Simulated assay, not measured.
Amino acid sequence: MTRFRSLETADLAGKRVLVRVDLNVPMADGAITDDTRLRAVLPTIHYLSTKGAKTILLAHFDRPKGKRVPEMSLAPIAKPLSALLEQPVLFGDDCIGKPAYDVITRLENGGVALLENLRFHPGEEKNDPAFVTELAALGDLYVNDAFSAAHRAHASTDGVARLLTAYPGLSMQRELEALDAALGAPKRPVLGIVGGSKVSTKLDLLNNLVTRLDRLAIGGGMANTFLAAQGIDVGASLCEHDLGDTAREIMESAKKAGCELLLPVDVVTATEFKANAAHKVQGLDSIAANESILDAGPETTKRLLAAMDASATLIWNGPLGVFELPPFDAATVAAAKHAAELTTAGKLIAVAGGGDTVAALNHAGVAAEMTFVSTAGGAFLEWMEGKELPGVEALQV
Rank of each mutant, 00 (worst) to 15 (best):
K126A: 15
K126M: 14
N127R: 06
N127V: 02
N127I: 04
N127P: 04
N127K: 07
N127S: 10
N127F: 03
D128V: 11
D128R: 07
D128K: 02
P129Q: 06
P129K: 04
P129N: 06
P129G: 08
P129W: 12
A130P: 05
A130V: 15
F131A: 02
F131D: 09
V132C: 12
T133C: 12
E134V: 01
E134R: 14
E134P: 04
E134Q: 14
E134H: 13
L135Y: 13
L135N: 06
L135A: 11
L135K: 12
L135M: 13
L135D: 09
A136P: 01
A136Y: 05
A136F: 05
A136L: 11
A136V: 02
A137G: 15
A137W: 05
L138M: 01
L138K: 07
L138T: 03
G139M: 10
G139V: 07
G139T: 12
G139Y: 11
G139C: 08
D140Y: 01
L141R: 01
Y142I: 09
Y142G: 06
Y142K: 05
Y142T: 00
V143E: 02
V143M: 00
V143I: 13
N144E: 07
N144K: 06
N144V: 06
N144T: 09
N144P: 01
D145P: 05
A146C: 07
A146T: 06
A146N: 03
A146I: 09
A146G: 13
F147K: 11
F147L: 10
F147C: 00
F147P: 00
S148L: 08
S148R: 10
A149C: 15
A149M: 13
A149N: 15
A150E: 09
A150R: 09
A150Y: 10
H151I: 01
H151R: 03
H151T: 05
H151G: 00
H151V: 08
H151C: 00
H151N: 01
R152D: 00
R152H: 10
R152M: 12
A153L: 07
A153P: 02
H154W: 06
H154R: 11
A155D: 04
A155S: 12
A155V: 02
A155C: 12
A155M: 08
A155N: 06
A155G: 08
S156D: 02
S156C: 12
T157R: 08
T157W: 00
T157D: 01
D158V: 11
D158A: 14
D158C: 14
D158I: 03
D158K: 14
D158P: 03
G159T: 10
G159Q: 03
V160W: 10
A161F: 04
A161N: 08
A161W: 09
A161V: 12
A161Q: 09
R162H: 15
R162P: 13
R162L: 15
R162K: 15
L163I: 14
L163V: 14
L163F: 10
L164S: 13
L164T: 04
T165Q: 15
T165I: 14
A166D: 01
A166S: 15
Y167V: 10
Y167C: 03
Y167Q: 04
Y167W: 03
Y167F: 15
Y167H: 12
P168C: 04
P168I: 09
P168F: 10
P168M: 08
G169T: 02
L170C: 04
